[in-house]
C-alpha cells in the first residue's frame, strides 16, 4: 500500500482533487461522525444520530439504528468480533458488523460516556463518576471516582484499567481479592487516557493544550506540551512505538522507546502541508505510516521518517476532519464534522 501511495502524483504543490479523491466513494451521512475503528477490513463508524455505520471491504455501507440518542463512545472488541458502544440513552451495547445488538447494561437518566475493551473478555463502561468493570466471570465491579470519568482504557493484557478524571488518572489493577486502585496525580482536567502498548506508560489528554504522562514504574511525570490547541485524536503507531497526536499544524509523534520514553526528547513532526491544525490522526497496524486530517478538510499521508515528503490524500477543502481510520489492508475512511465521508481503497492504486 505505501508503495502505491508513493507513486501517487498528488504532491503538495498540485491542485484540484487528488487521484485518490477522484476514485473514492463520497457520501453525506446526515449525522455527526463520532468515532471510527477498523474491524479487519471493515470500518465501523459511530454516529451522533445513534446509528452504527459499517463500511465493508468493497466500500458498501450498512447502517443500523442501535441507540435512541447519540453514540458517545465506541471501541473494537479484541478478536474484532464487533464493537462496544455507549449512548446518551444510557445503554451499553455490543454491536456486530451485521447489526446484531446485545444490550450489556442500561442506566436510568445517565449517559454512557466511555467504553473500553480488554483481553480475557473484560469490558468497561462509565456513567458519571462510576466505571462499571465487567470481569471475565461477568461480575460487575462499580469503581467510584472523585469526579466524572472522562476516559477509560485497558492495558494490552486486560489486567489494568486506567480511568481519567479531574486531578489525574486512577489505575485499577486486578489482584487476588478484586481490583485495587492506584492514583496518578496531576492538577487539571484529564479528558482521555491510553496505555503505551508495552504497558510501561499511561498518557492522558488534558483540557489544556497538552498531554500528560506517567512512567508507571516510579510515577515519574512526562509533560508533553506546546500544542496550539486541544489534543482530541491520538493513535499508537509502528513498533517503536510512536504516539501520534492531533492538535498542532502537523501530526506530532512522541517516541516511547527506551527507559525514558519521550522525556527530554522532541517529537517528530510530519504531514506539514497546509496552514491549518490537525484534527484527526490515524495509524495502520504494522506499518510505518501516518495519516493526518486537518481543520480545513484536507487529509495528508506520510511515512514515519523525518525526511519523508508528505503526500495529499484529499486536497479539497471541507469541514474539519474528525474521524480518520485506516484498515491493515489500506482502506481509509475520512469523515468531517458535517457528516461528509470519503472511503478510499488505497491498496488498489
Amino acid at each position: 500500500m505505501s508503495g502505491g501511495l508513493t507513486l501517487d502524483p498528488s504532491t503538495l504543490s498540485g491542485s484540484g482533487p487528488t487521484q485518490i479523491e477522484l476514485n473514492a466513494r463520497h457520501m453525506d451521512i446526515g449525522a455527526v461522525p463520532v468515532l471510527g475503528a477498523a474491524l479487519g477490513e471493515t470500518i465501523a463508524l459511530a454516529c451522533g444520530d445513534g446509528q452504527m455505520r459499517f463500511f465493508a471491504r468493497d466500500g458498501n455501507m450498512s447502517a443500523y439504528q442501535v441507540h435512541r440518542g447519540a453514540i458517545l463512545s465506541m471501541v473494537v472488541l479484541p478478536g474484532e468480533e464487533g464493537v462496544l458502544t455507549g449512548g446518551d440513552d444510557g445503554r451499553f451495547l455490543r454491536v456486530s458488523s451485521d447489526g446484531t445488538v446485545t444490550e450489556l447494561s442500561a442506566h436510568q437518566r445517565g449517559w454512557v460516556d466511555h467504553v473500553a475493551a480488554g483481553k480475557c473478555g473484560r469490558i468497561a463502561c462509565s456513567v458519571g463518576r462510576v466505571a462499571n468493570l465487567h470481569d471475565e466471570d461477568r461480575h460487575v465491579h462499580a469503581l467510584e471516582h472523585p469526579s466524572t470519568v472522562a476516559g477509560l482504557a485497558f492495558d494490552a493484557k486486560g489486567k489494568r484499567l486506567a480511568v481519567a478524571h479531574y486531578g489525574g488518572v486512577t489505575v485499577w489493577s486486578k489482584e487476588k481479592r478484586g481490583w485495587k486502585p492506584s492514583t496518578l496525580k496531576w492538577a487539571g482536567s484529564h479528558t482521555g487516557v491510553t496505555f503505551s502498548p508495552d504497558g510501561r506508560f499511561v498518557i492522558s489528554m488534558m483540557q489544556e493544550n497538552a498531554l500528560h504522562g506517567w512512567r508507571l514504574r516510579d510515577k515519574a511525570d512526562l509533560r508533553m506540551s506546546g500544542y496550539p490547541s486541544k489534543v482530541k485524536s491520538w493513535a499508537w503507531a509502528a513498533d517503536l512505538p510512536w504516539l501520534i497526536t492531533s492538535g498542532a499544524d502537523q501530526a506530532i509523534l512522541w517516541p516511547f522507546d527506551g527507559v525514558k520514553g519521550p522525556m527530554g526528547r522532541s517529537p517528530l513532526q510530519l504531514c506539514w502541508s497546509v496552514p491549518s491544525l490537525v484534527t484527526a490522526v490515524a495509524a495502520v497496524p504494522g506499518r510505518e505510516i501516518v495519516f493526518a486530517g486537518f481543520a480545513t478538510g484536507q487529509v495528508v499521508f506520510s511515512e514515519i521518517d523525518a525526511m519523508a515528503e508528505p503526500r495529499m490524500v484529499k486536497r479539497s477543502a471541507g469541514a474539519p476532519v474528525t474521524v480518520l481510520t485506516c484498515t491493515p489492508g489500506g482502506r481509509l475512511l475520512a469523515a468531517d464534522e458535517d457528516g461528509r465521508t470519503m472511503w478510499a481503497d488505497l491498496s488498489a492504486i
Partner: peptide, 16 residues
C-alpha cells in the same frame, strides 16, 4: 464547569 463541557460536547453530536 467541567460537567457542562462534557454535556455540551455530547449534545453537539446530536444536533436535533
Amino acid at each position: 464547569r467541567g460537567d457542562l463541557i462534557r454535556i455540551l460536547g455530547g449534545l453537539m453530536k446530536r444536533r436535533d
